Simulated scan of single mutants.
Amino acid sequence: MSLQNQVYPVIWQDDRVLLIDQTRLPSEYALVDIHRCEDMAQAIKTMIVRGAPAIGVAAAYGMYLGAREIETHDRDRFLTQLEDVAKTLRATRPTAVNLFWAIERMLKTARQTLGSVDYLKQALLKAAKAINAEDIQTCQAIGDHGLSALPSAPEKLRLLTHCNAGALATAGYGTALGVVRSTWQADRLERVYADETRPRLQGAKLTAWECVQEGIPVTVITDNMAAHCMQQGMIDAVVVGADRIAANGDTANKIGTYSVALIAKAHNIPFFVAAPLSTIDFEIRDGSQIPIEERDPAEIYQVGETILCPPGIDYYNPAFDVTPADLIAAIVTEHGAFSPSQLHGELYSRKIV
Rank of each mutant, 00 (worst) to 15 (best):
Y301P: 09
T95K: 02
A133M: 10
L124P: 01
I263P: 00
Q122G: 06
T207L: 04
P340G: 11
Q232S: 10
I103G: 01
Y348I: 00
I307C: 06
A43F: 11
K129H: 02
M225S: 07
E104M: 00
D15T: 02
V303Q: 13
H335Q: 06
A226W: 08
E190V: 01
F100N: 03
E134P: 01
Y173F: 14
M63Q: 10
Q112V: 03
R111I: 10
N253M: 03
M106S: 04
A186I: 11
D74I: 08
Y8K: 14
A247K: 13
L157V: 02
Y315F: 15
A52Y: 04
Q122K: 14
V97N: 11
E196C: 03
D223G: 08
M230D: 02
N248P: 08
Y316Q: 07
L168H: 04
G256P: 01
A204L: 05
I11L: 11
Y8N: 07
A176G: 12
T170Y: 12
N132K: 15
N224T: 12
S116R: 01
V322K: 01
Q122R: 15
G256A: 08
D76S: 15
V179M: 07
P154D: 10
V238D: 01
G215A: 06
T183Q: 02
R16S: 11
N224R: 14
E69G: 05
L124F: 04
Q185N: 10
I255K: 01
V85G: 01
Y316E: 03
I284L: 05
A261F: 03
L168C: 03
L19F: 14
H228D: 11
A227I: 05
K87R: 14
S288V: 07
L114N: 15
G287H: 05
S182E: 15
D144H: 13
Q122V: 00
H162P: 09
V180R: 00
P340N: 10
P26M: 10
L79I: 06
L327C: 06
C229A: 13
R93Q: 08
R244E: 02
E346I: 08
T88V: 15
H73D: 15
